[in-house]
Protein backbone atom coordinates (compact mmCIF):
# COMPACT_ATOMS: atom_id res chain seq x y z
CA UNK A 1 0.00 0.00 0.00
CA UNK A 2 1.30 3.36 -0.92
CA UNK A 3 -0.50 5.47 1.63
CA UNK A 4 -3.27 5.08 4.18
CA UNK A 5 -6.55 4.83 2.32
CA UNK A 6 -9.19 7.43 2.92
CA UNK A 7 -12.75 6.21 3.03
CA UNK A 8 -13.59 7.97 -0.20
CA UNK A 9 -11.08 8.07 -3.06
CA UNK A 10 -12.02 10.24 -6.00
CA UNK A 11 -10.29 10.13 -9.39
CA UNK A 12 -10.74 13.14 -11.67
CA UNK A 13 -8.86 14.47 -14.66
CA UNK A 14 -8.91 15.29 -18.31
CA UNK A 15 -10.96 12.80 -20.31
CA UNK A 16 -8.81 9.97 -21.59
CA UNK A 17 -6.26 10.47 -18.81
CA UNK A 18 -6.94 6.95 -17.54
CA UNK A 19 -9.28 7.55 -14.61
CA UNK A 20 -11.45 4.49 -15.11
CA UNK A 21 -8.51 2.08 -15.39
CA UNK A 22 -6.97 3.51 -12.24
CA UNK A 23 -10.26 3.51 -10.33
CA UNK A 24 -10.88 -0.16 -11.18
CA UNK A 25 -7.35 -1.16 -10.16
CA UNK A 26 -7.52 0.92 -7.00
CA UNK A 27 -10.84 -0.59 -5.93
CA UNK A 28 -9.45 -4.11 -6.45
CA UNK A 29 -6.35 -3.11 -4.52
CA UNK A 30 -8.41 -1.88 -1.56
CA UNK A 31 -10.46 -5.05 -1.58
CA UNK A 32 -7.45 -7.35 -1.77
CA UNK A 33 -5.38 -5.64 0.91
CA UNK A 34 -7.72 -6.01 3.88
CA UNK A 35 -5.03 -5.75 6.53
CA UNK A 36 -4.48 -2.19 5.45
CA UNK A 37 -8.04 -1.12 6.02
CA UNK A 38 -8.92 1.30 8.74
CA UNK A 39 -8.64 -0.61 12.04
CA UNK A 40 -12.25 -0.47 13.24
CA UNK A 41 -13.65 -1.80 9.99
CA UNK A 42 -13.84 -5.58 10.31
CA UNK A 43 -15.48 -6.46 7.05
CA UNK A 44 -14.16 -4.13 4.43
CA UNK A 45 -16.79 -3.41 1.87
CA UNK A 46 -15.51 -1.70 -1.27
CA UNK A 47 -17.75 -0.01 -3.80
CA UNK A 48 -16.72 1.55 -7.10
CA UNK A 49 -19.08 4.23 -8.30
CA UNK A 50 -19.10 5.33 -11.93
CA UNK A 51 -20.09 9.00 -11.94
CA UNK A 52 -19.14 9.42 -15.59
CA UNK A 53 -21.78 11.44 -17.42
CA UNK A 54 -19.51 12.24 -20.37
CA UNK A 55 -18.05 9.11 -21.93
CA UNK A 56 -20.44 7.07 -24.08
CA UNK A 57 -18.34 3.92 -24.64
CA UNK A 58 -15.45 2.83 -22.44
CA UNK A 59 -16.77 2.51 -18.91
CA UNK A 60 -16.23 0.94 -15.50
CA UNK A 61 -18.95 -1.45 -16.59
CA UNK A 62 -16.47 -3.09 -18.99
CA UNK A 63 -14.73 -4.55 -15.90
CA UNK A 64 -17.91 -5.85 -14.33
CA UNK A 65 -16.90 -9.52 -14.27
CA UNK A 66 -13.56 -8.85 -12.65
CA UNK A 67 -15.04 -6.52 -10.05
CA UNK A 68 -17.85 -8.91 -9.20
CA UNK A 69 -15.45 -11.83 -8.90
CA UNK A 70 -13.37 -9.85 -6.42
CA UNK A 71 -16.44 -8.86 -4.43
CA UNK A 72 -16.26 -5.16 -5.29
CA UNK A 73 -19.68 -3.58 -5.58
CA UNK A 74 -20.14 -1.79 -8.91
CA UNK A 75 -22.60 1.06 -9.10
CA UNK A 76 -23.10 2.73 -12.44
CA UNK A 77 -25.77 4.31 -14.56
CA UNK A 78 -28.47 1.91 -15.71
CA UNK A 79 -27.82 3.27 -19.16
CA UNK A 80 -24.01 2.89 -19.31
CA UNK A 81 -23.00 1.03 -22.46
CA UNK A 82 -26.55 1.19 -23.81
CA UNK A 83 -27.97 3.14 -26.71
CA UNK A 84 -29.55 5.73 -24.46
CA UNK A 85 -27.63 9.00 -24.44
CA UNK A 86 -28.78 10.20 -21.03
CA UNK A 87 -26.34 11.44 -18.38
CA UNK A 88 -28.25 9.75 -15.56
CA UNK A 89 -26.88 8.69 -12.18
CA UNK A 90 -28.46 5.84 -10.20
CA UNK A 91 -30.05 6.51 -6.82
CA UNK A 92 -28.10 3.53 -5.43
CA UNK A 93 -24.91 5.59 -5.28
CA UNK A 94 -26.27 7.63 -2.35
CA UNK A 95 -25.92 4.71 0.06
CA UNK A 96 -22.20 3.87 -0.15
CA UNK A 97 -21.26 7.55 -0.16
CA UNK A 98 -23.24 8.03 3.08
CA UNK A 99 -22.41 4.64 4.64
CA UNK A 100 -19.20 5.12 6.61
CA UNK A 101 -18.43 1.40 6.70
CA UNK A 102 -17.96 1.31 2.92
CA UNK A 103 -14.81 2.26 1.10
CA UNK A 104 -15.78 4.17 -2.01
CA UNK A 105 -13.81 4.68 -5.17
CA UNK A 106 -15.39 7.36 -7.36
CA UNK A 107 -14.68 7.40 -11.07
CA UNK A 108 -15.58 10.86 -12.33
CA UNK A 109 -16.23 11.84 -15.94
CA UNK A 110 -13.66 13.83 -17.87
CA UNK A 111 -12.89 17.53 -17.55
CA UNK A 112 -14.94 20.11 -15.69
CA UNK A 113 -18.12 19.02 -17.50
CA UNK A 114 -17.76 15.52 -16.08
CA UNK A 115 -16.90 16.81 -12.61
CA UNK A 116 -20.23 18.63 -12.32
CA UNK A 117 -21.85 15.34 -11.30
CA UNK A 118 -19.57 15.13 -8.27
CA UNK A 119 -20.63 18.58 -7.08
CA UNK A 120 -23.88 17.42 -5.53
CA UNK A 121 -21.94 15.28 -3.03
CA UNK A 122 -19.34 17.95 -2.26
CA UNK A 123 -20.83 19.22 1.02
CA UNK A 124 -21.44 15.69 2.28
CA UNK A 125 -17.89 14.58 1.43
CA UNK A 126 -16.32 17.69 2.93
CA UNK A 127 -18.40 17.36 6.12
CA UNK A 128 -17.12 13.82 6.73
CA UNK A 129 -13.61 14.91 5.73
CA UNK A 130 -12.25 11.40 5.10
CA UNK A 131 -11.59 11.65 1.39
CA UNK A 132 -8.84 12.07 -1.09
CA UNK A 133 -9.35 13.56 -4.50
CA UNK A 134 -6.63 12.75 -6.98
CA UNK A 135 -5.94 14.55 -10.22
CA UNK A 136 -5.02 12.01 -12.89
CA UNK A 137 -2.48 13.59 -15.22
CA UNK A 138 -1.33 12.23 -18.56
CA UNK A 139 1.18 14.44 -20.32
CA UNK A 140 0.80 12.49 -23.57
CA UNK A 141 -2.75 13.75 -24.01
CA UNK A 142 -2.96 16.55 -26.56
CA UNK A 143 -4.60 19.18 -24.35
CA UNK A 144 -2.47 18.48 -21.26
CA UNK A 145 1.01 18.34 -22.78
CA UNK A 146 2.45 20.82 -20.29
CA UNK A 147 2.13 21.19 -16.49
CA UNK A 148 0.59 24.62 -17.09
CA UNK A 149 -2.18 23.20 -19.31
CA UNK A 150 -2.81 20.41 -16.80
CA UNK A 151 -3.09 22.98 -13.99
CA UNK A 152 -5.77 24.80 -15.98
CA UNK A 153 -7.82 21.58 -16.25
CA UNK A 154 -7.21 20.86 -12.55
CA UNK A 155 -8.55 24.25 -11.49
CA UNK A 156 -11.53 24.00 -13.86
CA UNK A 157 -12.47 20.67 -12.28
CA UNK A 158 -12.24 22.05 -8.74
CA UNK A 159 -14.48 24.92 -9.74
CA UNK A 160 -17.03 22.58 -11.30
CA UNK A 161 -17.29 20.10 -8.40
CA UNK A 162 -16.66 22.43 -5.44
CA UNK A 163 -14.04 20.07 -3.98
CA UNK A 164 -10.32 20.81 -3.76
CA UNK A 165 -7.83 18.19 -4.95
CA UNK A 166 -5.58 16.54 -2.39
CA UNK A 167 -2.98 14.99 -4.67
CA UNK A 168 -1.73 14.12 -8.14
CA UNK A 169 -1.43 10.78 -9.94
CA UNK A 170 0.95 10.66 -12.88
CA UNK A 171 -0.57 8.29 -15.42
CA UNK A 172 1.35 9.52 -18.47
CA UNK A 173 1.26 6.84 -21.14
CA UNK A 174 0.96 6.28 -24.87
CA UNK A 175 -0.89 2.99 -24.60
CA UNK A 176 0.97 -0.14 -25.64
CA UNK A 177 3.93 1.91 -26.87
CA UNK A 178 4.78 3.36 -23.45
CA UNK A 179 8.42 2.93 -22.42
CA UNK A 180 10.11 3.39 -19.05
CA UNK A 181 11.90 6.41 -20.53
CA UNK A 182 8.53 7.98 -21.35
CA UNK A 183 7.40 7.51 -17.75
CA UNK A 184 10.63 8.94 -16.34
CA UNK A 185 10.43 11.97 -18.62
CA UNK A 186 6.82 12.59 -17.66
CA UNK A 187 7.84 12.46 -13.99
CA UNK A 188 9.57 15.81 -14.43
CA UNK A 189 6.35 17.36 -15.66
CA UNK A 190 4.37 15.74 -12.84
CA UNK A 191 6.73 17.24 -10.26
CA UNK A 192 6.41 20.63 -11.92
CA UNK A 193 2.61 20.31 -11.73
CA UNK A 194 3.03 19.44 -8.05
CA UNK A 195 5.05 22.62 -7.51
CA UNK A 196 2.59 24.77 -9.44
CA UNK A 197 -0.47 23.38 -7.66
CA UNK A 198 0.96 22.83 -4.19
CA UNK A 199 -0.35 19.27 -4.28
CA UNK A 200 1.74 16.17 -3.53
CA UNK A 201 2.55 13.69 -6.28
CA UNK A 202 0.94 10.66 -4.66
CA UNK A 203 1.82 7.95 -7.14
CA UNK A 204 2.88 7.08 -10.66
CA UNK A 205 0.62 4.52 -12.27
CA UNK A 206 2.47 2.13 -14.55
CA UNK A 207 1.38 -0.75 -16.77
CA UNK A 208 1.94 -4.01 -14.85
CA UNK A 209 4.75 -5.32 -17.06
CA UNK A 210 6.80 -2.12 -16.70
CA UNK A 211 6.08 -1.54 -13.01
CA UNK A 212 9.00 -3.51 -11.64
CA UNK A 213 11.62 -1.91 -13.89
CA UNK A 214 14.57 -0.89 -11.70
CA UNK A 215 14.77 2.48 -13.45
CA UNK A 216 11.52 3.40 -11.70
CA UNK A 217 12.83 2.65 -8.21
CA UNK A 218 12.65 6.30 -7.14
CA UNK A 219 9.02 6.67 -8.20
CA UNK A 220 6.05 5.62 -6.05
CA UNK A 221 4.74 3.09 -8.51
CA UNK A 222 1.20 1.72 -8.53
CA UNK A 223 0.97 -1.12 -11.08
CA UNK A 224 -2.02 -1.13 -13.42
CA UNK A 225 -3.71 -4.06 -15.05
CA UNK A 226 -5.35 -2.58 -18.14
CA UNK A 227 -9.02 -3.06 -18.89
CA UNK A 228 -9.68 -5.39 -21.77
CA UNK A 229 -10.11 -3.61 -25.09
CA UNK A 230 -13.24 -4.49 -27.01
CA UNK A 231 -11.45 -4.34 -30.41
Amino acid sequence: MIHRPKRISIFCGHYGSGKTNIAVNYALHLKNNCELQIANCELPHVAIIDLDIVNPYFRTLDSRKELEAAGVELICSDYAGSNLDIPALPAAMQRPIADRSTFCVLDIGGDDQGAVALGRFADQIKAENDYEMLFVASFFRPLTRTPEDALEVLRDIENACHLPFTGIVNNSNIGDETTVEDILASGEKARRLSELSGLPLVMTTVREDLATDPALKNETVFPLRLQEKPI
Binding site: Y15, G16, S138, F139, F140, R141, P142, L143, R145, N173, I174, G175, E177, T179, D182, A185, S186
Partner: peptide
Amino acid sequence: MSEKVLMKGNEAIAEA
Protein backbone atom coordinates in the same frame (compact mmCIF):
# COMPACT_ATOMS: atom_id res chain seq x y z
CA MET B 1 9.49 12.10 -24.25
CA SER B 2 8.02 10.34 -27.25
CA GLU B 3 6.94 12.51 -30.19
CA LYS B 4 3.61 10.77 -30.13
CA VAL B 5 0.49 11.77 -28.29
CA LEU B 6 -2.30 9.50 -27.10
CA MET B 7 -5.46 10.64 -28.82
CA LYS B 8 -9.06 9.75 -29.23
CA GLY B 9 -10.03 9.37 -32.88
CA ASN B 10 -12.27 12.41 -32.60
CA GLU B 11 -9.46 14.51 -31.16
CA ALA B 12 -7.13 13.37 -33.94
CA ILE B 13 -9.59 14.64 -36.54
CA ALA B 14 -9.84 18.01 -34.80
CA GLU B 15 -6.10 18.47 -34.34
CA ALA B 16 -5.34 17.34 -37.90
